[in-house]
Each structure stands twice: as structure tokens, then as C-alpha cells.
Design a protein around this nucleic acid. Structure first.
Lengths: 360, 360
DNA sequence: CTTAGCACTCCCGTTTCCTGAGTGCTAAAG
DNA sequence: CTTTAGCACTCAGGAAACGGGAGTGCTAAG
């Protein structure tokens, strides 16, 4: 059943009112918020209808209404005003993005903090690591017993390790090794590094001391851990200020869930490039998120890889503001990290609804 | 006034009882826990004495006693049994320490998680970075527009950065630059890198394109951020399970405090090498920690540098177990990272009391 | 110094009561 | 058929009242 214009207005008033106050919204409040020229009795009839249709619910018989997931979904898809960020807000985001220093780990942590500050919800970042491959291996000779492995991966991530050997090696050996590694390993992903390959590399370099396997071990380890996408959360404490998390148990469950990066990576079932995805309450796959909402924006991390930045909050969340801010941050990140220039309209707000199907 | 043996027994019973139950301990409970052969009335007299002396307090007139900070302090300094870790516990710690992979950042995060799991309190790690200096600079040529800076610092930390240039450079220029940087910058800390030095380096290398300043910028940035000791917290959510943090506001304040690494670094006013420091409630300098306790153990991070690993919990904390576990972990870390072999007795539990002076 | 006995205190969980916001329904009016 | 006024009804949640019980401090006797 299609909603009438008035019903939409009323639904919107309830959603926004509830977002503001966290209190059920009654017929009088709706009247005040909409400015509608009918009586409260009429509103009550409409509220009853919306409740019957599943957009609203009542905590108990004699209370006002609060939105259901279905109600929020309709709101997000159709009723929500696109929120333009004020100039000072965009300014601030830009400034902060500029000022954060290199190393993408630190960068992502900082961006997460920024998102937390901006939205006052816990923020998460996920550096989606398309399984990386080796681009180049360099060995820096320090002294007979130590050298540095410098490993360049696709996505322009550089990893390094300082190795101490229990025996002596030589600069020439390292040079040879580096050449052979570059010849044999370039373009390989972790699963294609076989013991045979390592053995043949060892022979080709004339390595009789087992340096090869040290280096290969580092490659494998690095490729493996870079596969397990780097996730990061900040601002969990902010949940505790919200009325819906006054119950420490509830808060504990969610924060605990968020603190395991495994769980976060599961969110990578990602939105399409360049837009914002909203997952409302029971739309979430994870039980622990079933009465929270997640807003995710994806950014271009360069080399065709994508990352996610998002926040977690109560279903009662200011979706329009949060979505706008995340979209803008994601756009900025894409500009910062992305290879080419972003596609047209990037950073603009284009909400892509989650499947309206609620997970059972 | 020196306490009698019986009083000490009673104090210990109260402290340990309260640690167990988080409930005020009454005279009967003391009797049961100590197995003393006197009557509850006698215990009551002693409790009154201990209260008069400031070791115990009463939440209200008709309740049992709980320890004051002074009471805990005496307990930690004199009454606490040294807790020996069981074989399975040490096994587990060793196994986990072995299995964690390289990169010290990740390592510390993992060790923190381990400490959280072991103690069920939030854990923090602080990699005390004695201000580092440059040991060596290498430049790896990739293509005319990009190269990698590999920077080796004291403490054998290796940092790197991939630089994209908006113009072309040459392999020979990079080689020259690397030589000049090594000649000019080795042994320098951040504050000794002056604009003049950079200028003269630029001239010496014959760099007309400004690559020098890019490299120098990275050096300065790296040295600076490595000074701001890397801190890390995990397991904050565990606080929410504790009865003393059922008030979300209290929990929020503490978690929030812990989430700022600035604050953590402040804890670096560190214990002496190789032992464990306990800061009880008001002994903490930070207001936010005034009704919590912090247990810190330091480890040898190699190159004469030290790091800290610790946990934060309610003053009612199982100090002996926590201290023993942290000491063992710290010992293991020292073995893993430390340059030489640890001093005799390392990893054993030697509690170094905080100043008994309570911060006013 | 110890201990039995006892009066006293006061927290805390339970119950009761009350108020007020908000509803749904009915019946009349548009 | 829709809107509106009127009204009885519901129910969450705060305030007040209550009682039990754990624990105390004190006194006086052993």
C-alpha cells in the first residue's frame, strides 16, 4: 500500500522527532512538528494506520509511537532530506585530512577518530585489501649479520623487516638473492608461493645458508596478514552516552563485538563504489548489530582497491547528517589515496538502500 | 602504629574478600575466611581499630568494611601472597608470544590483547620511545617518478615511505642523495635537523629538484611521531562487566580517558627496570584514574629502550594474580626484544610500591 | 582481653499509590 | 467517507511507605 502525502509527513515527523529526543512521539507532538492543520484525533487515526502497516510501533498501549526498521528504511530511502554540509564542516574535514601524516595505518586511525568526532558515534575503518601480490623485493645490507627486507606490494604498500642472522652473509649474496626474488616472485600472491619455488630460488641464488627461506617466510607472512583486511575502531565510549546503551550489558556486547576485527571485516560485503550504504537494525547480518544501525561509505584506496569508513549507532540515528559526513570524508580519502580522479559526482550523497529484506 | 599479626590477618581477609565479592565484608565473613579462633565481637573490635587507623572504611553505619587505598597499599606491599603462575598459564603465555608475528606495532597490540584475556581487565601497552636517532637512510629507485625511503632508526625500527614525485628524478641522483644523507644525518635526532643542514645536503647532492626536502620531511616526521610513544589499549569493554562500572557515566569517563594515547603516555613516569608497579586509586596522578588501579610492568625493548605493559581495573583488583601475569609477560617480551639476556631474576615478581603519598 | 547479649542503624527490595501522557472508540458534524 | 470533539481507559514510572536483615557499637560479665 502506497502511503498518502500526509502519512509520509507524519512518518517523517515521528522519525525525526524520535531521533531528536529518543522518546516515543505522540499525536500532539506530531501536530506541532508537522504544522499540519488537522486535529490530533486525525493524527491518531493516521498513526494507527501507520502502525497497522508496520512502519511504527508502540512500546506499550498508552505511549506514543516509535519507528520500526521498516519505518526507518522508508525514511532513509524516500523521506530524508539531503543534508548539505556547512562550509565550516567541509573546511574542517579537509583541513584534518590534509594534516594527517603518511603511513596508511595511522592515517586510517586518524580518519576514524575524525569520523567519531564529527558524528559522535563509534567509527570504523576497513582497509579492504584485495589479496596483494609482490611487486618488488629489495634487500639492504647492514652488516654481516643483519639486513633489511623491503617489500613492495600492489597497492603501493611497503613492508619491511630487519633480520638478524645467527651467521654471516655477504652483500653479494643479498644482491643475488634480491635479483632472483624479483625474477621469481613478482606478481605472485601468497598461495602461489610453494616450497618448490622457494627451493629453486635458493638454488638459483646459490644460497647455502638458508637466507632464502627467511625472506620467503617474511613474504608469506606479510601477504597473509595483509589479506586479513586492516580494521580499526574508535570512539566506542561514545555509545555509553546514548540512552539506548545505558544498560551496561547491551553496551558491553556491542563494544566487544566491535573490538574484534574479524567481525568488522565481515561488513566488507560492501556498498558499491562511491555511495553510502545504510544498514538498519535487523537488516544487519550479525546478531550483535540487530538493534543498531551501520552507515558505511566506501572510498577508492588506489590500485583499484576499496576501503570502507563507517559508523555504528542506535537505529535512532541522524542518518542524513551521518551519511553526508561519511560521504564527504570518503570522497576526500579517495582524492588523497585514489589513483585517478574520482568518478563524477563522487563524494555526493547517493544512498544505496540495503536489501529491504530483513534478515530473519 | 604497627599492626598486630591478627590485625594483618583480618586486613588481608577483608581485602581478599572484597576482591572476590565486591561486597563489604562483615565480622562473620572475616571469621569464616581467616579461621581465627576468636568471636565475632573481637573481630568487630579489631575492625573498628583498623577503621580508626584508616585501613578500612564503612560505606554506611551498618555495613561491613571495605579497604581504603591505604589498606590496599599495605596489602600489596606486605600481605599479598606471591602468586606463582601455573605451568599451563606460563605455557600459554609463551605459546602466544611465540606465535605473534613480526612488526612491533602489531606485536604490542597482540600482547595487549593477551593481557586483557589473561586478566580480564583493559590492558595498555606503551612503547617507550627514547627519542630515536637516524642510523641509516636508503633510497630504492622504482621509476623516474617514484622511490621508496627506507629509514633505519636506533632501536632497529625500520620505517618506510613510498614517494611519488610530480617530476622525474634519476637513479644516480638517489644514490648520491642516499650517500649524502648517510654522511650528514647519521646519529641525529629530530631537533638537530635544521633547515641549514637540509640546504647544505641539497647542495652536496646536487639536487636541484627538491627531492632532498621530501626526504628530510619524512625523517623529521618519523622522528617526531616515534617520539610520541606508541600507546595502545584493548579490552575496554571488560570494564562494563564489573559492578563498579555499572554506571555508564563512570565507565564512559574512564574509557574515554584511556582512548587518548596522550594520557597513556603520561603513565610513562615509569617503574624501574624489571619490576612491577602498582598504583592504587588516589595514588594516580590523573583524576580519571583516581578510583581505579593501574598495574604496570616494564620490559626491555632492546637498544636500552623500555616499554610498559599494564592493566587498568577497579581498586578491588586481584593484584597478586595480575602482577604475576604482567611480570611474566614483560619478562617474555624482554627476552623477545631485548638486546642482551635479561638481568638475573628478571620476570620474577618484585613489587615496587608507588609512593605511598596519596596525591591530594 | 575476650565474649555474649542486645538495642540500634540503615540499606535495599517490595508493595502501594498516584499522576499524567497518550491512546482508541464513539458519535456527531462537515 | 473524513474529520473532530469528548471521554473512558491503560499503563509507565516516580514517590512514599514498609519490613526484613545484615551488621554495627556498646555494655557488662567472664
Amino acid at each position: 500500500m502506497e502511503l498518502t502525502g500526509r502519512q509520509k509527513k507524519i512518518l517523517r515527523a515521528v522519525v525525526e522527532g524520535y531521533i531528536d529526543t529518543a522518546e516515543p512521539i505522540g499525536s500532539h507532538t506530531v501536530l506541532a512538528r508537522t504544522g499540519l492543520t488537522c486535529s490530533s484525533a486525525t493524527i491518531r487515526n493516521e498513526l494507527a494506520a501507520l502502525t497497522r502497516e508496520g512502519y511504527l510501533e508502540q512500546p506499550h498501549t498508552s505511549a506514543g509511537r516509535i519507528p520500526t526498521a521498516k519505518g526507518y528504511r522508508l525514511y532513509v530511502n524516500e523521506l530524508m532530506m539531503e543534508r548539505e554540509l556547512s562550509h565550516s564542516e567541509t573546511e574542517e574535514i579537509n583541513r584534518k585530512l590534509q594534516s594527517t601524516p603518511a603511513g596508511t595505518d595511522k592515517l586510517m586511525a586518524d580518519v576514524g577518530k575524525m569520523a567519531t568526532e564529527l558524528t559522535s558515534y563509534p567509527a570504523l575503518t576497513i582497509s579492504a585489501a584485495a589479496s596483494a601480490t609482490v611487486k618488488r623485493v629489495d634487500l639492504i645490507y647492514l652488516d654481516p649479520n643483519s639486513f633489511i627486507i623491503v617489500l613492495l606490494l600492489t597497492g603501493d604498500t611497503v613492508k619491511n623487516k630487519l633480520v638478524h642472522l645467527p651467521f654471516s652473509s655477504t652483500e653479494t649474496l643479498l644482491r643475488r638473492l634480491s635479483a632472483v626474488f624479483n625474477a621469481n616472485f613478482t606478481g605472485l600472491s601468497e598461495e602461489r608461493i610453494t616450497p618448490e619455488l622457494i627451493a629453486s630460488t635458493e638454488r638459483a641464488a646459490g644460497d647455502t645458508m638458508g637466507v632464502t627461506s627467511v625472506i620467503a617466510g617474511f613474504l608469506i607472512e606479510t601477504l597473509m596478514t595483509s589479506k586479513g583486511a586492516g580494521a580499526n575502531v574508535s570512539g566506542e565510549a561514545n555509545l555509553l552516552k546514548l540512552p539506548e546503551f545505558q544498560n551496561p550489558d547491551k553496551a558491553h556486547r556491542l563494544i566487544n563485538y566491535l573490538s574484534d576485527s574479524q567481525n568488522l571485516s565481515a561488513l566488507t560485503a560492501a556498498p558499491d563504489f562511491g555511495d553510502v550504504k545504510v544498514l538498519i537494525g535487523p537488516e544487519n547480518a550479525a546478531l550483535e548489530l540487530r538493534d543498531s544501525s551501520v552507515v558505511l561509505a566506501s572510498y577508492d584506496a588506489g590500485d583499484g582497491m576499496r576501503g570502507l569508513i563507517g559508523v555504528v549507532g542506535p537505529t535512532r540515528m541522524d542518518y542524513s547528517a551521518v551519511a553526508a559526513k561519511l560521504a564527504y570524508i570518503a570522497g576526500g580519502l579517495s582524492r588523497l589515496l585514489g589513483a585517478g580522479s574520482p568518478p563524477a559526482g563522487f563524494g555526493k550523497l547517493m544512498i544505496k538502500g540495503g536489501d529491504s529484506d530483513v534478515q530473519k
